[in-house]
Design a protein around this nucleic acid. Sequence first.
DNA 1: CAAAATACGTAACATAAGATACAGCGCCCC
DNA 2: GGGGCGCTGTATCTTATGTTACGTATTTTG
Lengths: 301, 301
Amino acid sequence: MISYSLVGFVKREFGKMAAAGQRAGENMISSIAELISDRIGTMPAGERRAAQTLIANYPLTGLKTVAEFSAAAGVSSPTILRFVARLGFQNYPEFQSALQDELAAQLQSPASRTLNPSSAGGAVSPMLEATLDNMRETFRHLTDKQLADIAARLAERRGKTFLIGGRFTDPLARYMAAHLAIIQPDVYHLAGQESIWRDRLIDMGKRDVLVIFDIRRYQDSLVRFAEKAHQRGVQIILFTDQWLSPIARFARHVIAGRTAVPSAWDSSAALFVVAETLIGAVTRQLEAAGAKRIRDLESLR
Amino acid sequence: MISYSLVGFVKREFGKMAAAGQRAGENMISSIAELISDRIGTMPAGERRAAQTLIANYPLTGLKTVAEFSAAAGVSSPTILRFVARLGFQNYPEFQSALQDELAAQLQSPASRTLNPSSAGGAVSPMLEATLDNMRETFRHLTDKQLADIAARLAERRGKTFLIGGRFTDPLARYMAAHLAIIQPDVYHLAGQESIWRDRLIDMGKRDVLVIFDIRRYQDSLVRFAEKAHQRGVQIILFTDQWLSPIARFARHVIAGRTAVPSAWDSSAALFVVAETLIGAVTRQLEAAGAKRIRDLESLR
DNA sequence: CAAAATACGTAACATAAGATACAGCGCCCC
DNA sequence: GGGGCGCTGTATCTTATGTTACGTATTTTG
């Protein structure tokens, strides 16, 4: 897949500007909208109409076809193409890809708008803000029904439940296992070396559930393990990041959490909260089902 | 210009539902994302993978071409087309137009981006909202300076760093240890039975740091351990809940996180985020100090 | 005012996109 | 264990999209 990124594009543009003797630091062009308003003055009438229609409801018109764009602007198709050519794009698809990349960046970090002025300089606030955004975003892509389905699958006691995680996410698997193991039997956290849990595959069948935590860099050992478990008919519930671990290929349910934070490390906090939410949901379902074990537990306390 | 609006589409869908004897008021479908998660359960494996990849970074993948979509999902083009057909769209362009219309509505009213209104009555929102509140509250009582001090203490390489947690918080200790152990030497997570880590006390002295996670019900074993470590001059950093574990008595630094959520369990999410923030801060400090280990690490990658 | 240059649209073209037919495969049920 | 059903991918076809060439209109300049 060839992707024409905005970054690459802007770099090229800066190249041109530098060649023309301009200093890149002065007019920073970080979005196509700015690029347009920067050059709209030098455009002929038709292309200006195209520019204005695009800006009017940016960036949607640019994502449609050339024909639709031209109709919306009231000009002909070639004018649209000349317009995007003047912006520096080689062809229309490249232009659209740039718009999409820009949109992706916007949608993935809503943090850019919610700037807390009180957070002057401190290293804490950006981290917290990003984390909060990640959680909101994560849950925005997660419906009640999905969570309820997954919780129901975890709550139904047909088979065993196995949990496993990667290098940094294994603690999440442990955390979830620690809770689930209390409210229901046959919950196992797979720990230690690969050879150890690989041998546990023998115990797994199509009635069982395997919960896997895997964020990039995705671990080959986990992928292999997931594949084999999948072949055995085990239902896989995957916690991963928004780029989806290759395990998604085998998973019955996929939970994609946002992980980007201003830090050297990725954040698993959003996945952690999803895990807690699921733990609560499973507990509630078991309570509602009047599970004997729950009553016994309460009497023990 | 022919525009296939989402509104029109939903109307048609409601028509089908009404014909099938369902009442439209019960499951309101106001976005394609909801529509997908509503039907994802009834989909075959391949189409479900398509659905999951689309949801993972919604709605961008849906705006790309069928070929790109299929490549991202790891399935073939026809599967993508069958997927959109199952959602009720006549063809792929109609599907894309619906996504674009939805996007347009979102971009015009950024307020609607805050939360999924349909999840108002569900069990998710209260949990998420409580968690977010907990984090804000936790960080409100936590100054930048406090965190910076703790991070500095963890970053200075005079002695060893030990981490330990309670029944449910031990995974947090593991998570933190997994990161810290990478960027600096002599980081040890204390696991297993009490007798094991009690014996490790011999290794601990006043140059060392002990990070303890303990929320209620506070574990006696941890309190005893903390007391003995304190007597040996070990500096204790305590992660606890707002009611403060008795260990706070011995601790040099105390981080009190909010734990209350509408669930049968307490939430450790706020503490988790503090831990991540600290991990990031320590990393940054070590980088700034030009630690050789960090450079070596980067060259290894 | 005339001539040149530029801009714009119509129409034909080539390419790449979406749609379809069909065969292989796995899965479930009997 | 065998037969049937359903899902999935390969290959082919068709559509429509982006692209280009060219002639006309419009503006600009000497």
